[in-house]
Protein backbone atom coordinates (compact mmCIF):
# COMPACT_ATOMS: atom_id res chain seq x y z
CA UNK A 1 0.00 0.00 0.00
CA UNK A 2 0.96 3.58 -0.58
CA UNK A 3 1.35 6.13 2.25
CA UNK A 4 2.01 9.84 1.90
CA UNK A 5 4.31 11.16 4.62
CA UNK A 6 4.82 14.83 5.54
CA UNK A 7 7.65 16.10 7.73
CA UNK A 8 7.57 19.39 9.63
CA UNK A 9 10.11 21.55 11.46
CA UNK A 10 13.36 19.93 12.56
CA UNK A 11 12.16 16.48 11.39
CA UNK A 12 12.09 17.68 7.77
CA UNK A 13 15.76 18.55 8.16
CA UNK A 14 16.60 15.16 9.61
CA UNK A 15 14.85 13.39 6.73
CA UNK A 16 16.10 15.90 4.15
CA UNK A 17 12.62 16.27 2.63
CA UNK A 18 9.26 17.87 3.34
CA UNK A 19 7.27 14.91 2.04
CA UNK A 20 7.54 11.55 0.35
CA UNK A 21 5.50 8.55 -0.68
CA UNK A 22 6.28 5.30 1.13
CA UNK A 23 5.31 1.86 -0.18
CA UNK A 24 4.55 -0.86 2.37
CA UNK A 25 4.56 -4.61 1.64
CA UNK A 26 2.63 -5.70 4.74
CA UNK A 27 -1.11 -5.26 4.66
CA UNK A 28 -1.46 -4.69 8.40
CA UNK A 29 0.81 -2.04 9.86
CA UNK A 30 0.24 -0.30 13.19
CA UNK A 31 0.78 3.45 13.26
CA UNK A 32 3.45 3.17 15.96
CA UNK A 33 5.32 0.52 13.93
CA UNK A 34 5.34 2.81 10.94
CA UNK A 35 6.58 5.76 13.01
CA UNK A 36 9.34 3.58 14.43
CA UNK A 37 10.44 2.41 10.99
CA UNK A 38 10.63 5.97 9.67
CA UNK A 39 12.58 7.08 12.74
CA UNK A 40 15.01 4.18 12.27
CA UNK A 41 15.37 4.89 8.57
CA UNK A 42 16.47 8.48 9.15
CA UNK A 43 18.10 8.13 12.57
CA UNK A 44 15.51 10.31 14.28
CA UNK A 45 15.33 9.99 18.06
CA UNK A 46 11.88 8.68 18.87
CA UNK A 47 11.02 11.34 21.37
CA UNK A 48 7.58 11.37 23.03
CA UNK A 49 7.42 15.08 22.15
CA UNK A 50 7.26 14.11 18.46
CA UNK A 51 3.59 13.96 17.57
CA UNK A 52 2.03 12.15 14.64
CA UNK A 53 -1.17 12.89 12.74
CA UNK A 54 -2.98 10.46 10.46
CA UNK A 55 -5.18 12.19 7.91
CA UNK A 56 -4.93 15.47 9.87
CA UNK A 57 -5.95 13.89 13.17
CA UNK A 58 -3.46 13.47 16.01
CA UNK A 59 -3.16 9.77 16.84
CA UNK A 60 -0.73 6.97 17.65
CA UNK A 61 -3.00 3.99 17.90
CA UNK A 62 -4.65 2.14 15.05
CA UNK A 63 -3.79 0.63 11.71
CA UNK A 64 -2.58 2.40 8.61
CA UNK A 65 -4.76 2.24 5.52
CA UNK A 66 -3.76 2.56 1.90
CA UNK A 67 -3.76 6.22 0.87
CA UNK A 68 -3.31 7.58 4.40
CA UNK A 69 -1.41 10.81 4.94
CA UNK A 70 0.89 10.73 7.95
CA UNK A 71 2.44 13.92 9.33
CA UNK A 72 5.38 14.13 11.73
CA UNK A 73 4.92 17.15 14.00
CA UNK A 74 7.75 18.09 16.37
CA UNK A 75 7.05 20.95 18.79
CA UNK A 76 8.44 24.39 17.90
CA UNK A 77 9.74 26.86 20.45
CA UNK A 78 10.69 30.01 18.51
CA UNK A 79 8.87 33.24 19.19
Amino acid sequence: MEIKVKYFGSVAEETGRAEETVFLQDSVVEIWEFVKSICNKYGITEDPSLQVAVNQVLQREGIIQHGDEIAFLPPYAGG
Binding site: S10, D47, P48, S49, Q51, L58, P74, P75, Y76, A77, G78, G79
Partner: peptide, 17 residues
Protein backbone atom coordinates in the same frame (compact mmCIF):
# COMPACT_ATOMS: atom_id res chain seq x y z
CA UNK B 1 -1.09 18.36 22.04
CA UNK B 2 2.44 17.96 23.41
CA UNK B 3 2.44 15.93 26.64
CA UNK B 4 6.19 15.68 27.08
CA UNK B 5 8.87 18.30 27.41
CA UNK B 6 11.89 16.31 26.37
CA UNK B 7 12.50 18.47 23.34
CA UNK B 8 15.26 21.00 23.45
CA UNK B 9 14.38 24.67 23.12
CA UNK B 10 15.46 25.82 19.70
CA UNK B 11 15.07 29.58 19.59
CA UNK B 12 15.13 31.95 16.62
CA UNK B 13 18.49 33.17 17.96
CA UNK B 14 20.00 29.75 17.39
CA UNK B 15 18.48 28.67 14.09
CA UNK B 16 17.27 31.86 12.47
CA UNK B 17 13.82 32.91 11.35
Amino acid sequence: LYPEINAKNISCEEIGV
